[in-house]
């Protein structure tokens, strides 16, 4: 509960901050959650303004990050519950969504979320063909077919016959 303070704004209490996404929507976040982001913590230490504008994070991604921060700021939850929340948090998310998420965690400097998302992206990339990875990361193949074959030939000793997935 935030108590009313008619004379001064909430800065004295430092209970919550407002974060605006690049789409212009605003989110009310408890300060204990916000400071889990190293970037937000720095901003809050430097200025009294309770409104933080993030020009490169969209609504959807910001909402997810805030959900994460709020859960992790909740002292009432055990570490085990937080871990299972992390699992749940990234499961079933599209690769694209994860890419935006990992970029946002980089901007906001939320190291533990960054690692969780990176792990999930790595898990998705397992057993995938080179072509799949290129497509998802939007990467141009700068190898000539000869060069690619050469790398495979040079390093190859034996190939196992696992089926790689293209979707």
């Amino acid at each position: 509960m935030v108590t009313t303070d008619e004379k001064g704004p909430l800065t004295a209490k430092k209970k919550s901050v407002i974060i605006r996404s690049c789409d212009g929507d605003e989110f009310l976040v408890s300060e204990s959650a916000a400071v889990l982001s190293t970037s937000l913590k720095k901003i809050l230490e430097e200025k009294e303004d309770r409104l933080i504008h993030l020009s490169d994070i969209d609504n959807k991604t910001l909402a997810m990050v805030i959900a994460y921060l709020s859960t992790h700021a909740d002292d009432g939850l055990s570490d085990d519950l937080k871990r299972s929340f992390d699992q749940e948090f990234v499961s079933g998310k599209e690769f694209d969504v994860l890419k935006y998420l990992v970029l946002a965690t980089d901007t906001l400097q939320v190291t533990c979320l960054c690692y969780t998302v990176a792990k999930k992206m790595a898990d998705i990339m397992k057993n995938k063909l080179v072509e799949w990875v290129r497509r998802e990361f939007d990467i141009q193949n700068d190898y000539t077919p000869e060069a690619e074959a050469e790398i495979r030939r040079l390093d190859a000793w034996a190939w196992d016959d696992r089926q790689l997935e293209d979707d």
Binding site: V102, L103, D106, C114, Y115, A118, K119, M121, A122, D123, M125, K126, N127, K128, L129, V130, V133, R134, F137, I139, Q140, N141, D142, Y143, E148, I151, R152, D155, R162, L164
Partner: peptide, 25 residues
């Protein structure tokens, strides 16, 4: 960014890195 890419690739098992990831570009 390279550091994020680094963090992702780091978590891919060696045999996947060997079979496909390193051949991406």
């Amino acid at each position: 960014p390279d550091d994020i890419l680094f963090d992702i690739l780091l978590r891919i098992p060696a045999q996947d890195i060997y079979n496909s990831t390193r051949l991406v570009c």
